[in-house]
Design a protein around this nucleic acid. Structure first.
Lengths: 216, 216
DNA sequence: GGCTAACTTGAGGTATTCCTCAACTTGCGT
DNA sequence: ACGCAAGTTGAGGAATACCTCAAGTTAGCC
């Protein structure tokens, strides 16, 4: 029984290959950011100034790009969550989290698609989403415990909210990039404990949640 | 100067042609309802048991189907709006309108796409949407005047809400068909006058609104 | 029954995107 | 400066969807 050795220095690339890989990554970040996760791979190759064959040589699947691109964006999201948890006021932290989250989605169509689960994430990204969800749970719990966030708002409702806002962002960013902020403001007013009226419908169960994630 | 004669009895169809047209319409209603407005036309022909050529003979464009299908659905929506305006309590009318609207969207992916402007509507449908918007304005105005709906909720915000809910419906209907009701309940709690906090961002201007509509 | 206009058919052209692979080119160790 | 492993290339196969049109079929009138 020897070590599985999951990342054994992934062999050094030749200079030209490393350059092409970088150009592809830059192009992919741009194109996915502008066009969303279903952007054409041919366009990425074109913008990188590289043939489609070279693209497939470096990134054999669309998901391989995502694994290379998203960790940085997800790290930004983690920083947002950190500062949300560090905020003196739990409600301010909760609001700051949502604003930071959607601001990130708004500036990157690809991240918007990914977080709205419009595309099934690969292993790497899925893991990060899972970790992110656990931390979001704490932000929500903290705001509920302080008595400011309505007590019937569950972490699963965050997923629904992300779906909702992702579409507002998709439709409005090109024309009126502040629209999502107004929509969020209305929604937040409904999440304050003082505003709460009884809600008849239960949240997504964890089972339903993972089914929806699996669906796409 | 003679009459423009906009609908001069659109020539009677041969019996077999009329039958095929019906089969196509039934199939199209099903397929667009299940798959959304970007469903494959070949699948419609297949399900109607008719060749692709016949489909194009009767409905030369995708939009021609919409013009034939949507008037009935939009009439259902008008009935929802009628009863919203007839409700004794303006807030109940407003809530009933939104619930009726989204219930219709939930049972028809095609209507969901159409109302969310995911696809540019053809003349017929666009007219109906315009009329619908005018009536929605009255429902909103009435609820605001009664002091129950927050005064800063504008008709343009309804468009944003439809975007938001359309995505919740798209993602959740297959797995947890009540999810949109819970989301709407949260949102409605933020729309009550008592819940309102000042919102910094202005609504879409009419100009932005029509630009977004034109965009797709 | 026969004729004709109305209707149907589906192969095939166009376009887009994905992905592969045999032939070519080039970085780099020696 | 040579040779080869590493890397690049782009034509082209496969899949999917759109749409057209020349040839074939049929409803319905006489």
């Amino acid at each position: 029984m020897h070590q599985p050795d999951p990342a054994p220095t992934p062999k050094p690339l030749r200079a030209d290959a490393a350059r092409n890989r970088d150009k592809l990554l830059v192009a992919a970040t741009e194109v996915f950011g502008e066009r969303g996760l279903d952007a054409s791979l041919e366009e990425i190759a074109r913008r990188a100034g590289v043939s489609i064959g070279t693209l497939y040589n470096h990134f054999p699947t669309r998901e391989a790009f995502w694994d290379a691109i998203f960790p940085e964006r997800l790290a930004a999201l983690e920083r947002v969550m950190e500062s949300a948890l560090a905020a003196p006021d739990p409600w301010d932290g909760f609001v700051g989290y949502l604003e930071g989250l959607f601001a990130l989605q708004a500036e990157d169509h690809g991240l918007n698609d990914a977080l709205a689960q419009r595309f099934r994430a690969a292993g790497e990204v899925e893991q990060a989403c899972h970790r992110g969800f656990r931390r979001a749970e704490r932000i929500i719990q903290r705001a509920r415990d302080s008595g400011q966030l309505r007590p019937d708002f569950e972490p699963e409702d965050l997923v629904t909210l992300i779906w909702a806002m992702s579409q507002v962002i998709r439709e409005s960013m090109a024309t009126a990039p502040d629209t999502w902020r107004r929509c969020l403001a209305f929604f937040l007013d409904g999440l304050r404990a003082g505003a709460a009226h009884p809600v008849a419908v239960p949240p997504l169960t964890p089972g339903q949640l993972s089914e929806v994630m699996r669906a796409r």
